[in-house]
Amino acid sequence: MKRNLLTALPLVLALALPAAAQDSYPDRSVRIVHGFGAGGNADTVSRILAEAMTEGLGQPVVVESRPGAGGTVASGYVANADADGYTLQLMVGGHTVAAGLYNSLPYDSLNDFTFLSIIGQFPFFIAARAGEYDSLEAVIAAATADPGSIRIGHSGVGSTQHLTGELLDLMTDADFLHVPYAGGAAAATAVMGGEVDILIDTGTAIFGQAAAGVFDVLAVTAAERWPDNPDVPTVSETVAPGFNVVSWTGLGAPDGLPDNVVEVLTAEIARVMALDDVRGRIAALGASPVGSSSAEFQELVETQIKTWTEVIETAGVERR
């Protein structure tokens, strides 16, 4: 029996080799690069994916943080990496903001990347100190009547939260004062202390406060009401028809990825995104775990680059 197996071995190998050469991806470890600090949202999502994909790909998937300049250091690195499927990037909504915000990026935000799949999507919520405003309409009315009197605290110039506030400014008659803070937590504290009036941030930053009666949640920035919070009206249905801001995380790679690698990766991402454990952990981070086709992801990026570039130009945000 043993001898039979041994004699058959060369034949089996001969048959298997050509196929292996084509389908050998991945034959070594795969990196997921992201552009933010260890322990942040991007890092956590990367680690959740890496853990799950290690099982499916049969090779270790490791996370590498290359923080700096709003994630553009990492994007520049990935854009110039070999398109062999061993360097992936966990991208965030900020990728599309950066396209409009930076004067000279060392890469093309759209054409230098292969967009594999959206991972999670999450809207922002607009909140005020409890009891101050009944609705978003009341806020807009106050900010229209006395320009500059209503202050929106945001997490930093050029952040998606900041630009969402600017977009609200542009799409209504209101004239807000946009006040930058060093991060969303500092902005939230400023709203609590009464230094500013309005906070635009993710659900995880707002709902803990809302539950304790510190904030009133006035609106959600998505086009449709968010399934987890159906009582919160949209900006679109209240003050600015067509208003739609949804941020996201997604998995991308350098442009020019071989087709077979794209197939392996998209199949693996689809498998992972169907796992309850992965979905649960992404949902815990305040995002809706979606998954998507490569084309849907690409279209989302294209649309958002257009929107943010317009907002940055119209609102007069300083390009860097």
């Binding site: 956590t44 937590a185 939230a188 504290t189 995880t204 803990g208 304790a212 952990r281």
Partner: peptide, 27 residues
């Protein structure tokens, strides 16, 4: 408050969120 004072505290808050606890004054 459930609001992190610095980057290290933000990581702690992150650990709470991963455990399904939304940080806030009700903690």
């Amino acid at each position: 408050l459930g609001v992190p004072g610095d980057a290290v505290m933000a990581l702690m808050i992150g650990a709470l969120i991963l455990n399904g606890i939304i940080p806030g004054p009700r903690l």
